[in-house]
Design a protein around this nucleic acid. Structure first.
Lengths: 125, 125
DNA sequence: TATTGTTATACTCTATAACTATA
DNA sequence: TATAGTTATAGAGTATAACAATA
């Protein structure tokens, strides 16, 4: 929890919450999704996702379109603005990591790199 | 962030927040500390630590004593109740991990075990 | 005058319950 | 009747600003 709080502060974009970032990441991988799908993937309740999607739309990072087959649903898509923001995020994150890297040796970094995909898998299990 | 949300839900003790758990962990290692020291170690602002310590005291998990040399400060100490609670926590956490273990192979678990001390180090860097 | 801790207050993120619209 | 999404509301956790007591 200590580490996660520090990472929160070293946020790439101050204006985006961790979950908002995570939703953009999911959209980057999936192309598009409905709010319900996003809520399930992020392990968040539907009303929370409604709010998150509304915030992202206000920042012009996603677009909302009607679902082609089911008029109850909506389709959420990433905008170009979101893509370039993610690119900028990666740059800043790398800069922070480079700074932290001075405190770890090669073996320690290797341990983190090996664990990353396992954590990714756990998050989806 | 997805994983951390899931871990939050699989909390060992529903009545204790992640930061409260973390403070108890710190006290278990350090013996005792002032609220200010705890705030710095947990990377939380002093008013937040005031509230956390008050909650822990209400649950009889810590004791607050006057500082021997500086009458502005206080000394926070773990109670026996906290020790036995941490013990119970470990048991429950292990049960959950054992369940999750079915989804990972030996190599994947080894990767997590190797990364744990590095994350611990990063949290203190 | 600086530091430790507290009180008062507000903000962010999330949840549950109740509602609307469509299937 | 069931499902997708929303609105209204509440709660947890944290922060900043202003304050009290002590160094």
């Amino acid at each position: 929890m200590r580490l996660s709080r520090r990472l929160k502060h070293q946020r790439v974009d101050e204006s985006l919450s961790p979950t908002e970032m995570s939703v953009l990441g999911t959209l980057a991988r999936c192309g598009s999704a409905t709010p319900g799908e996003l809520a399930r993937k992020e392990h968040v309740q539907p009303p929370s996702m409604t709010r998150i999607v509304a915030l992202l739309e206000a920042k012009q990072l996603v677009r909302l379109e009607p679902h082609p087959e089911d008029r109850r649903q909506k389709v959420v898509t990433q905008t170009e603005r979101a893509e370039s923001m993610l690119e900028e995020s990666r740059r800043r994150r790398n800069a922070w990591l480079a700074e932290l890297a001075q405190g770890l040796d090669d073996e320690e970094w290797a341990a983190l790199r090996a664990a990353a995909p396992v954590l990714e898998k756990l998050a989806h299990l």
